[in-house]
Simulated assay, not measured.
Amino acid sequence: MAHDSNGLSDRVSRRKFIATTGATGIAAIAGCSEGGSSGGSDGESGDGSSGDGGSTDGGSTEEESTETATEQSLSGEINITGSSTVFPLATAVAEEFQKMHSGVDISVQSTGSGGGFENFFCPGESDINNASRPIKDSETQNCNSNNVNPHEIKVATDALTVIINNENDWATEMTVDELAQIWGPEAGSGQTWADINSDWPDEEIERFGAAETSGTFDYFTEVINGEEGAHTQDYEPTEQDRTIVQGVTGSQYAIGYLGFAYYSQNPDQVTAVAVDNGNGPVKPTLETAKSGEYAPLSRPLFTYPAMSALSEQHIAEFCRYFVEQSANTELVANQVGYVPNSQEEMQTELDELNSAIEEANS
């Protein structure tokens, strides 16, 4: 993946890619390697294995030839389900992996974190499940009952973003309590902006948010409303974040919430709300998410391969590559829109993954 003179065009291409795949919620990455060399990461990734097979120094050594042959010999299918928030990152990583391993067919499907665990991963129908919150104990038990043992990998940090229509000039800053009044279980049809703040318009609030199968739904309700699942039913639920953007764009009195990556691809279409958690309003940015200043809506993002899947070489190598790329600032931050792992975090995740792979093959 060239990140120097082509950085802008890469970024524009990724934005178009997210806009199209985000609407459908599924990406089949087979055949993306045409015309590509090995296309690994830039220097940000800190890896020296899966991501740097493309450069030579003028002569092919026997060792280099062996490495190339090993890379090209990988083949098989990888089925990835889960979080719509992690979807654009997983798809971007899968696309780059395909450039080095054309024999590996990867399908990434946006099903929601919970929907992915319940309907695909725990029943053994997918190899990896992405999640925008940690796996629940009940989900782990469900997986274990089907002899599926998940391994947790932190791949990035998100600034979960509340968005409003660009013509909304009254609620650009909101407290956690005001958000709780809008999104709590008691909020219902007929509630107006003036009901939240008497200085705001006496116009009914239109809500667009994550479906109950989404990890974003779980996380948002827990940190804003104080209890997982404590969420109004009077809203338009969806697993497709692009639909939330479109809904908020279409009404001056609308509000929604979604992963920062989708907002960062549409910064001119909607307005991000600055959230006041008691220390003054803070806008969602990669910097405020990384520092923890954007509270309480900064959150870690995960992917969960099954231990049994890690016994397959092509899946193990993809997971290693995903971990290595989690520290790639150009890919994770600039192209997708999340906070990358630090080099230390990446190495910790890689060490733990390698241990899991060794265990899976023992």
Rank of each mutant, 00 (worst) to 15 (best):
T238P: 03
A230E: 06
E227K: 07
E227M: 10
Q265E: 14
I205K: 00
G226W: 00
P237D: 02
N277C: 14
G184A: 09
G184R: 04
Q181V: 11
V273N: 01
D241E: 14
W193P: 04
G188R: 05
G259T: 03
T213E: 14
T192W: 12
T249L: 14
Y257W: 11
E227P: 02
I205C: 05
E178Q: 14
R242P: 08
I244T: 03
N197K: 11
F260G: 11
E212W: 02
F208Y: 14
I224D: 02
G226F: 06
G188V: 04
P267N: 08
W193V: 07
R242S: 13
L258I: 09
E186V: 04
S189Q: 15
N197T: 05
A274P: 03
G229H: 00
Q252W: 04
G190R: 02
I255P: 03
E204C: 01
Q191K: 07
W183S: 07
N277S: 15
D276P: 03
D177W: 00
N197R: 02
A261F: 08
V223K: 06
A254L: 03
A194H: 07
A194K: 05
E206T: 13
E206H: 13
T216R: 05
A187S: 14
R242L: 13
Y219R: 06
Q181K: 13
W200T: 01
V245K: 00
D177Y: 01
G259W: 01
A187I: 00
D276T: 07
I196S: 02
A261R: 02
I196T: 03
T216N: 07
P267L: 06
T249W: 05
A272E: 13
V223P: 07
T213S: 15
A274N: 06
P237T: 09
A180G: 13
V270L: 07
E178T: 11
F220N: 01
T271E: 01
T238L: 15
G215D: 02
D276G: 10
F217V: 12
L179P: 12
F217P: 00
I182L: 08
D276I: 03
Y235R: 00
E212P: 06
V223A: 08
E236M: 15
E186S: 15
P237N: 10
Y253I: 11
P237H: 02
P185I: 12
T216P: 06
W183E: 00
A272Y: 08
N225F: 00
V223R: 10
I255G: 01
E186A: 15
G250S: 13
N277R: 03
D241W: 12
G209H: 02
D218M: 12
W193A: 01
G247Q: 04
E222Q: 10
Q246D: 13
E178L: 03
Q265I: 13
F260M: 05
A180L: 08
Y257A: 12
F208M: 07
Q233M: 09
N225G: 09
S189I: 10
W193Y: 08
N225Q: 08
Q233K: 06
Y262T: 12
T249K: 15
D234P: 01
Q246V: 12
V248K: 01
G215C: 14
E228A: 13
G256F: 08
T213V: 12
S264Q: 13
H231V: 13
D202S: 10
G250A: 14
A210C: 10
T271I: 06
Y235P: 04
F208A: 12
